Simulated assay, not measured.
Amino acid sequence: MTADRNTSRASATPPRGFPPQEFEQRLAAAQAQMRAQRLDALLLSTEPEVRYFSGFHSQFWESPTRPWFLIVPLEGKPVAVIPEIGLSGMAATWLDDIRTWPAPRPEDDGISLLAETITALSRRYGRLGVPMGHETFLRLPLQDFQKLSTRLAALEIIDCAPLIRQLRFIKSPAEIARIHHICDLASAAFENLPQRMHSGQSEREICQDFRMDLLRRGADNSPYLISGSGPDGYDNIIMGPSDRIIEQGDVLIIDTGTTFDGYFCDFDRNFAFGKVSDLTRRAYDTVYRATDAGFAAARPGATLRDIWVAMWNILEAGGALGNDVGRMGHGLGMQLTEGPSVTDRDDTPLRPGAVLTLEPGMTYAPGKQMVHEENIIITENGARLLSRRASPELPIIS
């Protein structure tokens, strides 16, 4: 890796929440894009988008009972249309136009109020942006969206998913500080893990202890913590942790998406217990060097395809039989995985402020995978690590 590699610890714990200026900047950037795309307003209904523009950060989204809406107009501040139960929480944000209804009310769960609010907005283009593309969904019943569409028949509904993705792909310094902080906490927990685990434990026991260590260090939550293991390798990286007992000769992968103040880290570490084969050691070395190659390729003006090609060239030369994951990295921030994806088909250009995962992986023998992941930020001078770099050699737990 280049001199921009950063293995230092993050600075002091960032303050929670953002000042109004942060949201004003996000809003101004959105409204500039809205003018360029001739949109009168955006209608948002999912937690990350609502939080991105309002700062409303609540665990209450875990309940599927009530829908929540945020309208971003072409002029002025966003308007919240939410259940009454959320009034005091939303009032604590920078927003001042908050409209409520007594939810749950299945016969009209905010749809009339939402339609009235949108209809009353000044109209220049007759177009309403709603995220409808890849990696988006509407957090309301389909029949309610159909009712809303009928009420808004005078407006053309346009997919604004690319607009939102472009905005969120580039992080502010305050967002980067949060991601760096949680990467630092997870890095420290991973570095401490070899002293806390041993053969004879189950994957579940090891991961439970790892999660508790993360929480003690100051993480808010570890909603994504998976593992896989097997003799001299593993064949699955999206299940687990299971009750499988780790034995001598096993390889264990642990991958975590852990949060601080609503922002994720997402990276993994591999461990071997006792003696492993030279083939497995070489596979680890290959994915490690592929990560280096991806890091070197990650610079302003390069594309995600450039990163993919750089990593795949190393994997292929290292004997990769294939990669069935579908991508080798992705955006990262308020969600565990954000767009875009590091694939050989994505020509999204990199810009300073983009946060990515580098995740080269390969099948190195039938039924055996090796995957490695780090988190990086794109700067004016190239890439910089947010996670602390893994060991260059496969760690052996005696």
Results as ranks from 00 to 15, higher is better:
residue 1 M to F: 12
residue 1 M to T: 08
residue 5 R to Q: 15
residue 7 T to V: 12
residue 8 S to W: 13
residue 9 R to S: 15
residue 13 T to R: 13
residue 13 T to D: 14
residue 14 P to N: 15
residue 14 P to V: 09
residue 14 P to Y: 13
residue 18 F to R: 14
residue 19 P to T: 15
residue 21 Q to E: 15
residue 24 E to Y: 03
residue 29 A to D: 00
residue 38 R to C: 10
residue 41 A to D: 01
residue 41 A to N: 01
residue 42 L to Q: 01
residue 42 L to G: 02
residue 45 S to E: 15
residue 47 E to H: 12
residue 49 E to D: 00
residue 50 V to M: 07
residue 61 W to E: 05
residue 63 S to N: 00
residue 65 T to W: 00
residue 70 L to A: 02
residue 71 I to S: 07
residue 78 P to Q: 05
residue 79 V to T: 10
residue 81 V to S: 10
residue 86 G to E: 15
residue 91 A to E: 12
residue 99 R to I: 12
residue 99 R to D: 13
residue 99 R to V: 08
residue 99 R to K: 05
residue 100 T to H: 11
residue 104 P to G: 12
residue 105 R to F: 13
residue 112 S to E: 10
residue 120 A to C: 03
residue 128 L to W: 02
residue 130 V to S: 07
residue 135 E to M: 06
residue 138 L to A: 09
residue 140 L to Q: 13
residue 145 F to H: 10
residue 150 T to Y: 07
residue 154 A to F: 02
residue 160 C to Q: 06
residue 161 A to E: 12
residue 168 R to F: 00
residue 173 P to R: 09
residue 173 P to C: 13
residue 177 A to G: 09
residue 182 I to K: 00
residue 187 S to R: 06
residue 187 S to E: 07
residue 192 N to W: 11
residue 198 H to W: 10
residue 198 H to C: 13
residue 203 E to P: 13
residue 204 R to M: 14
residue 205 E to G: 12
residue 208 Q to T: 14
residue 208 Q to R: 10
residue 209 D to F: 09
residue 213 D to R: 06
residue 215 L to R: 03
residue 216 R to L: 10
residue 224 Y to L: 00
residue 225 L to S: 08
residue 226 I to V: 07
residue 229 S to L: 04
residue 232 D to L: 02
residue 236 N to E: 10
residue 239 M to N: 14
residue 241 P to I: 06
residue 241 P to D: 01
residue 243 D to C: 06
residue 244 R to E: 15
residue 246 I to G: 05
residue 247 E to I: 04
residue 253 I to E: 10
residue 258 T to M: 06
residue 267 F to I: 01
residue 268 D to L: 03
residue 268 D to N: 08
residue 275 K to V: 11
residue 276 V to T: 00
residue 281 R to C: 11
residue 281 R to P: 09
residue 294 G to H: 06
residue 294 G to E: 07
residue 296 A to T: 05
residue 298 A to Y: 03
residue 299 R to Q: 08
residue 307 I to G: 12
residue 311 M to Y: 15
residue 311 M to G: 15
residue 315 L to M: 12
residue 320 A to L: 05
residue 322 G to Q: 07
residue 325 V to A: 14
residue 326 G to V: 06
residue 328 M to I: 12
residue 329 G to K: 09
residue 337 T to P: 00
residue 339 G to A: 11
residue 343 T to I: 04
residue 345 R to S: 13
residue 346 D to K: 05
residue 347 D to C: 02
residue 349 P to T: 01
residue 349 P to N: 03
residue 350 L to P: 13
residue 352 P to D: 04
residue 352 P to N: 05
residue 354 A to V: 14
residue 356 L to Y: 03
residue 366 P to M: 09
residue 367 G to W: 03
residue 371 V to Q: 01
residue 376 I to H: 00
residue 380 E to P: 01
residue 385 L to H: 05
residue 390 A to G: 07
residue 391 S to N: 02
